[in-house]
């Protein structure tokens, strides 16, 4: 046995085995950094508020979002107790916006989540395995890349029929190749670094290496790109709805509302702009929050 040999190196700290300070885990320090970042906190609160509005829509909405009125069409803010006026069929605008958050958030987030999981997994596998596996995965993705994303979404949901579920599946398939490529590039970059070699030299299995050494370095770029896709997804979903392939009228949906109100642009432009404003605020908040989280996840600060 050869351990326990005294060396000239100072080992006085051996006497105190309890490390008191600075034993935060990685995620704890990420949280602390997020709480120090005012902008991210504020925009995060807005996102949270939108999510809560969507969940508790029936409790919050002042009117029935489906109740039409033949005389009260396209009325301005505050008309007969309608805070944001009424739409082209006389329905309460605020209630429709609150209910519309439901489908818009779902259509915005679910496809991105699915695509991140599927595309991210495929990308990490391809990037780490390299060679033939990588070629097989990435060339398949390239086939999807060849089509414009809107066209692809329309084609897929057109083939499968309309409805929200099929719309979400179509959007997931649209986003998967892009996320796969981001994950693949990031993984291939990390894989060539010496610390992966060092981990292999330690005798670690590929899955262990991916879990401990690759994911942490790949998550950042994937995350930032995925969050920027949320707003794109909301817009694409509204495009699908407009073509009758996504959410169907009279369901309240921001994209659908935007396209039906389009015709009334010269009658009451402010009302017509409301769903667009909702989409704008939501997507910009998502982008800013994801940016804040990404920089909080970066240890070089």
């Amino acid at each position: 046995m050869t351990q326990a040999v005294a060396t000239s190196i100072d080992t006085s700290w051996e006497a105190d085995p309890a490390p008191a300070a600075k034993t935060r885990t990685y995620w704890q320090s990420v949280l602390i950094r997020i709480f120090r970042d005012k902008a991210t906190l504020i925009f995060g609160t807005v996102v949270l508020a939108i999510v809560l509005l969507a969940i508790f829509a029936p409790l919050i909405a002042p009117f029935d979002p489906y109740k039409e009125s033949i005389i009260g069409r396209l009325k301005p803010f505050g008309w007969r107790g309608h805070p944001l006026g009424t739409d082209e069929l006389g329905r309460d605008m605020l209630s429709r916006l609150i209910y519309g958050a439901r489908s818009s958030l779902l259509m915005g987030m679910v496809p991105v989540l699915v695509a991140t999981l599927v595309g991210g997994t495929l990308g990490v596998i391809g990037g780490f395995a390299g060679k033939r596996v990588n070629t097989a995965i990435m060339r398949t993705m390239d086939v999807f890349y060849a089509f414009p994303s809107v066209l692809l979404a329309v084609a897929i949901s057109g083939a499968m029929g309309g409805g929200m579920m099929n719309g979400m599946i179509a959007l997931s398939m649209v986003f998967t190749p892009a996320l796969c490529r981001i994950a693949e590039t990031a993984t291939a970059q990390v894989r060539s670094l010496d610390f992966i070699e060092a981990a292999r030299a330690t005798g670690a299995r590929p899955l262990t290496i991916i879990r401990h050494h690759v994911l942490g370095n790949v998550l950042g770029p994937v995350f930032i790109y995925a969050s920027s896709l949320v707003s794109v997804s909301i817009l694409l979903a509204s495009g699908l709805s407009f073509l009758g392939l996504g959410v169907k009228p009279p369901e309240p949906d921001w994209g659908l509302m935007l396209s039906t109100l389009r015709q009334s642009l010269y009658v009451n432009p402010i009302i017509c702009a409301m769903p667009g404003a909702a989409i704008f605020v939501t997507s910009i908040c998502f982008n800013l929050v994801s940016d804040g989280i990404r920089s909080a996840m970066d240890v070089r600060q």
Binding site: D194, F195, E197, H212, H213, N217, V299
Partner: peptide, 12 residues
């Protein structure tokens, strides 16, 4: 390894 920087995981 030679490159002391790239042989340590920057996020660990």
């Amino acid at each position: 390894f030679q490159d002391s920087a790239s042989s340590l995981n920057p996020r660990m």
